[in-house]
Design a protein around this nucleic acid. Sequence first.
DNA 1: GCGATCCTGGCC
DNA 2: GGCCAGGATCGC
Length: 273
Amino acid sequence: MPELPEVECTRLSLAPLLGKKVECVFLSQKAPIKYSTTHKIKEIITGKDLHDINRKGKYLFFLFEDENELILHLGMSGKLVIEDKSSRHKHCHLELKFSEHLFLRFIDPRRFGILSHCQKDQWTNHPYSKNLAFDYLADEMHFSHFLKKCRRHPKTNLKSLCLNQSIASGLGNIYACESLYHAKLDPRRLVNDCTDLELKSLFFAAKKILNLGIKKGGTTLRDYVNGKGHRGDMKRFLKVYDRESLLSLDHKGKVEKIVQQNRSTFWVPTIQV
DNA sequence: GCGATCCTGGCC
DNA sequence: GGCCAGGATCGC
């Protein structure tokens, strides 16, 4: 489900929790914990102050006192919500009870999400950091860096390139389609057949679309809400995603759907070459 | 690089 | 009942 803009909007909406202490932690039997344990996660969080919440790509990092971090990925169907009372959700896998009767709940029906932990500054040794590049909006991500990485994948098509989080992270299926449309590039083209200038237009299109997504509060297709329960407004601005056989939102051409790597790609063949 | 796979729920 | 879904990993 959530791509960089939704994760960022979730992060921003959780600001009311900063500086508050976690009084107790609930983890479900089926919580999607990887490279950690229920015991360890409870240990690093219980009774601790939440100092900060950071994001890299689509991962969230909850920094607690004593420099431990809870790592959380929303996967396909995950969401984080702040609530002010006890409540029973069928698929709640993590609940943090903060002071002042505030609850943070991680709801994830499909359990494609991830819960893990690491010591601050040990992230680079964590298994999930291995395949995670800087994201498109990170200060460290410059075009020259992106280009160098792209050139290591000459046989990859542009849609796969967009979704490959080890080249640059943050794009998912929606924003990948939108970025390729904005850059006027055929999603089937191989990196090897693209000029530096074309890759540059893709890079800056991705940054622009992701920033717009954040500004609009993220894309709500059906379920997405931020921590305060607010839906995103970006769906109204998507030019090609989920518009098969319709005109693109800007009326520049007819949208077609193809399947690449088992995932739908929406694009406009008359514009994207 | 590609396809299968992990899950549940909604829709036709 | 079958198909599809905003993600990422693990085989081959």
